[in-house]
C-alpha cells in the first residue's frame, strides 16, 4: 500500500504547530498503525529530519499510552480499538490519512502527537481509590459480591485512561473517564463508605482541570477502546447529585 499522511507537527508547547504531509510507500496491510509510523520515522531519522514523536508503550491495547485522532476519529474508525491495535488492512490503498493529537486544553501538547494527560492522574488523586492501607484488609471472602455487580464493576474498571473520550467529546469533557472510576468503585461493597465524597471530589477536580461538561452526545463511548458504557456517566451524575444534596 502507498499512503499520504498529513501529520500534526509541533516542536514544543510554545510552537503553534502545523500539518505536514508525508508519503509512505510499501506499507504492508498486516502492519499496525504504529508500525507504519515506525517505518516512516526510521526514514526521517536517516534523512536527518526530526521523527514524529508519539506516545506508545505496550502496543497491545492495554496501557493506554498511545492515542491519536486518525481521520477525525480518536484511535481511528475501527471500533473498540486503540491506535496500536489498529491495522493497516482497514485502510484503502492510496488513502490520505490525517493524524492529529488529542486536542483539549487540559491535555497540552508536549510535542507533535504527544500530550500531557496528568490531569487524569489528578482526578484519581482526588478520590479514585478505596482508602485501605496495605496489611489492613480482612479475608477476601468476608464480603460476598454479587456476580452481576462484580461484572459491571469490571466493565467500568477496564478504562485504560487513554483520553480518547476527551479527544472525541465536542465539549472536551472527561466525564466518561471520571465516571468509569466512580462507577467501578460504586458497584463494589468496598467502595461504599467513600462513595459520595469520592464522586464529589472527582467531579470537582475534573471541572477544576478545565474539562468541558457532558452534554450526553455519546461520542466518548463510541470511540472508547474498552467500550465503557454511557450509563457510567448516569451513575456518576446520580452519585454527584446525592453527594450535593446531603
Amino acid at each position: 500500500m502507498n499512503l499520504t499522511l498529513k501529520v500534526w507537527r509541533q516542536s514544543g508547547p510554545s510552537d503553534a504547530g502545523r500539518m505536514v504531509t508525508y508519503r509512505v510507500e510499501d506499507v504492508s496491510p498486516d502492519m499496525s498503525f504504529l508500525e507504519m509510523l515506525d517505518v516512516l520515522n526510521e526514514r526521517l531519522i536517516l534523512e536527518g529530519d526530526d521523527p514524529i514523536a508519539f506516545d506508545h508503550d505496550c502496543r497491545e491495547g492495554i496501557c493506554g499510552m498511545c492515542g491519536m485522532v486518525i481521520n477525525g476519529v480518536a484511535h481511528g474508525e475501527q471500533r473498540a480499538t486503540t491506535t496500536c491495535q489498529l491495522h493497516m488492512r482497514h485502510f484503502e490503498d492510496d488513502a490520505t490519512i490525517t493524524i492529529e493529537p488529542w486536542r483539549a486544553a487540559p491535555f497540552p501538547v508536549v510535542k507533535d502527537l504527544v500530550v500531557d494527560r496528568s490531569a487524569f492522574d489528578r482526578i484519581i488523586q482526588a478520590g479514585g481509590f478505596v482508602s485501605v492501607p496495605a496489611g489492613s484488609a480482612p479475608d477476601a471472602h468476608s464480603i460476598p459480591v454479587r456476580k452481576e455487580d462484580a461484572d459491571a464493576a469490571f466493565d467500568a474498571a477496564t478504562c485504560i485512561g487513554c483520553g480518547a473520550c476527551v479527544a472525541a467529546c465536542p465539549n472536551g469533557s472527561a466525564s466518561l473517564f471520571t465516571a468509569a472510576k466512580i462507577t467501578h468503585l460504586s458497584l463494589v461493597p468496598q467502595g461504599q463508605p467513600e462513595r459520595l465524597s469520592r464522586a464529589k471530589a472527582m467531579v470537582d477536580q475534573m471541572d477544576a482541570e478545565g474539562f468541558g461538561g457532558c452534554t450526553n452526545t455519546g461520542e466518548c463511548t463510541a470511540v472508547c477502546p474498552k467500550g465503557i458504557p454511557l450509563d457510567a456517566i448516569a451513575q456518576m451524575n446520580s452519585d454527584y447529585l446525592k453527594a450535593n444534596s446531603k
Binding site: 498529513k6 485522532v69 481521520n71 477525525g72 474508525e77 490525517t98 486544553a105 472536551g172 469533557s173
Partner: peptide, 10 residues
C-alpha cells in the same frame, strides 16, 4: 476546553 480545533473531525 478545546481552544485548538481539529483539522478533521468525524
Amino acid at each position: 476546553a478545546r481552544p485548538v480545533k481539529y483539522v478533521a473531525k468525524k
